[in-house]
């Protein structure tokens, strides 16, 4: 019977589309490098299917100790069956201590599945990773109960420890290439006929610039304080006057007022912007974790709202009134 100390090294799955590596895999390598330096584990990147050389170079630059290349049948398009199987087969052979997968739609689709195949614990959406030397467990620290509390989650007995992490949670800061990088090649064939959910086709979404807010210069973010969709127009006008775009928090998406692509935060889009102005946003950690702003302004009627802890400038007041005043002032300035 294996002890948990028999499981060594940490793996990061490098999600890719055959052309480029998704940023989240690289971000995870950078963060896990630091954790592995603490634990003494080696860091391996797992690449399934062909990825161009220059993209693999980006992985190498993240100071990985090794790369596991998986080839074989069944990987032409993402499918849960073949990808989950690949990790189960690999994990049983090499017994890693932890496996990290980017919390993309497909990452969240297959990682919990191979965790069941391996009969082990799976966590999602950690914002910090720490190591407890006493237990040898990773502490997955994540917001819970709508962002009111932080919860420490561990996998105390089982291995590997599986975690999905949202894109943008960790910084891409490559530590530089190691002099020696171990190369492991594994052929794991999955019968394409045995894939139970088959890819038929893919149609890219039309690019709507208003829905592309990740790097907008200015974002006017509207939160649950909004009374109804009829009150939304003034915020659109303010965003326009500021040369910016409108975004929202999760409740507005849940209420069907704005589309998911405008939802800012850990479970939506992570934004980097020069000026961010929130109206009627309470300031749950899940939301603020997704905001990287040079200047952060918050407007809310509740003086105790957590959002004021994140802002540079705050106004306590009625969101609609303050917005209208700002519109008047900006119009006057532009004349």
């Amino acid at each position: 019977m294996m002890q948990k100390s028999d499981y060594k090294n940490m793996w990061v799955y490098i999600e890719h589309d055959g052309k480029t590596a998704a940023p989240v895999g690289l971000e995870l390598c950078c963060e896990l490098r630091k954790l592995c330096d603490t634990t003494g584990d080696k860091l391996y990147a797992v690449i399934i299917g062909d990825l161009p050389h220059e993209e693999v170079d980006k992985v190498r630059e993240c100071a990985v100790d090794g790369i596991i290349y998986v080839s074989g049948t069944g990987y032409d398009y993402f499918n849960t069956d073949a990808y989950a199987n690949a990790f189960t087969v690999l994990s049983r052979k090499y017994n890693p201590s932890a496996i990290f997968v980017g919390g993309t739609i497909n990452g969240r689709d297959f990682a919990p599945r191979f965790a069941v195949q391996l009969d082990t614990g799976c966590t999602s959406d950690a914002m910090e990773l720490e190591y407890d030397p006493e237990t040898g467990d990773i502490q997955f620290i994540e917001p819970a109960v709508g962002g009111k509390i932080m919860a420490v989650i561990t996998v105390p007995e089982l291995r590997p420890q599986v975690g999905t992490i949202r894109p943008g949670t960790f910084k891409y800061a490559p530590a530089g290439r190691k002099a020696e990088i171990e190369v492991i090649c594994e052929e794991i064939n999955f019968d394409p006929e045995a894939i139970r959910c088959k890819h038929i086709d893919f149609v890219p979404d039309d690019l709507d610039p208003e829905l592309d807010i990740a790097n907008a210069d200015c974002i006017v973010c509207v939160g649950n304080g909004l009374k109804d969709s009829e009150h939304l127009e003034r915020y659109r006008e303010l965003a326009k006057l500021l040369g910016g775009k409108i975004g929202c928090t999760r409740p507005l998406f849940d209420r069907g007022i704005l589309p998911y692509k405008l939802q800012i935060g850990q479970s939506g889009v992570m934004v980097k912007t020069k000026l961010y102005i929130s109206f009627g946003v309470s300031g749950a950690v899940n939301h603020t974790a997704g905001v990287d702003a040079d200047v952060f302004v918050a407007v809310d009627k509740n003086p105790d709202a957590q959002i004021f802890n994140y802002c540079d400038y705050g106004i306590v007041g009625d969101m609609d009134t303050v917005c209208d005043e700002l519109i008047e002032l900006l119009k006057a300035r532009q004349k």
Binding site: G121, A151, V152, I153, V155, E157
Partner: peptide, 8 residues
């Protein structure tokens, strides 16, 4: 598989 040893 998982436990929550601490919340804060």
């Amino acid at each position: 598989g998982t436990i929550v040893p601490k919340i804060y």
